[in-house]
Structure formats: C-alpha cells, structure tokens
C-alpha cells in the first residue's frame, strides 16, 4: 500500500469513526452535527426506556444497550434500517425525517417492543 493510499484509508476510517456510533453518547438534549435534536433511549433489563417517545421531525434517536445481553433494534415494518447486534454499551442512531408512528422491537428478544412517534 502506498503512503497516499494509507493516508486516504486513514481519512476514511476517521470519517467512519466521526459519523459512526461514537457520537451517540451525547445527552438527550444535545444536538447532532446536523443540528438535529438527539433523543436517547436506554435498553435496560430487556426493555426500551422510554418505551414510547414523541419527537419532532428531523430528530435523531439513539439507543444505547445497558444490558449484559446483546440486543438488535429492528423496525416492525422495515421503516428504518435495523441495527447490528448491540453489545453492552454499544449505541445505534437513526434520524427520523418523516412524520409517523414507528414501531420497533428487538429481533432476538421480540417481547421487547417500543414506539417512536414523529410529529
């Protein structure tokens, strides 16, 4: 690999890191880089908390797994992209630009259900 290619790869990796899940650790009233408000949902004791959340259009919702068990955030009607397996302390964020009611669940513990109402 050339030096230039290595640098390019480095930049790509840095961008991935900046755009990835790391930013999701911000508090609920924080804003994302795009200026959208961020709403936190904790996954704890095999439940989403809060279970139902109402957010304005354009808000970013970030789930963080506080359990020792992995969880997978999955849209019930494939309305948004599912997360990968979230291990302890992993986060996953989705920006909701359209109004509507979004039901989701954990694909490996399907009794875990939550709702996002976008106004």
């Amino acid at each position: 690999m050339t030096v230039a290619a290595t640098l390019r790869l480095g930049c790509v990796l840095m961008m991935v890191a900046l755009c990835g899940v790391d930013r999701s650790a911000v508090a609920a009233d924080a804003s994302s880089a795009e200026g959208a408000k961020v709403f936190q949902i904790d996954i704890r004791n095999f439940a989403f908390a809060p279970k139902t959340i109402t957010v304005p259009a354009g808000a970013r919702v970030v789930w963080t797994n506080r359990d020792e068990e992995p969880h997978v955030v999955t849209s019930a009607g494939a309305q948004f992209t599912s997360s990968k397996a979230l291990d302890t302390s992993d986060s996953y964020g989705v920006t909701f630009s359209k109004q509507g009611t979004y039901t989701y669940y954990c694909s490996i513990h399907p009794m875990m259900v939550g709702t996002i109402i976008v106004q």
């Binding site: 999955t74 019930a76 039901t103 989701y104 669940y105 490996i108 399907p110 009794m111 259900v113």
Partner: peptide, 10 residues
C-alpha cells in the same frame, strides 16, 4: 424456533 420472530411475540 428462533427465526422470523414477530414484534411482541415469543
């Protein structure tokens, strides 16, 4: 019995 699980189901 662990595939195609339904939201809210077992």
């Amino acid at each position: 019995n662990v595939l195609n699980l339904r939201a809210g189901g077992l």
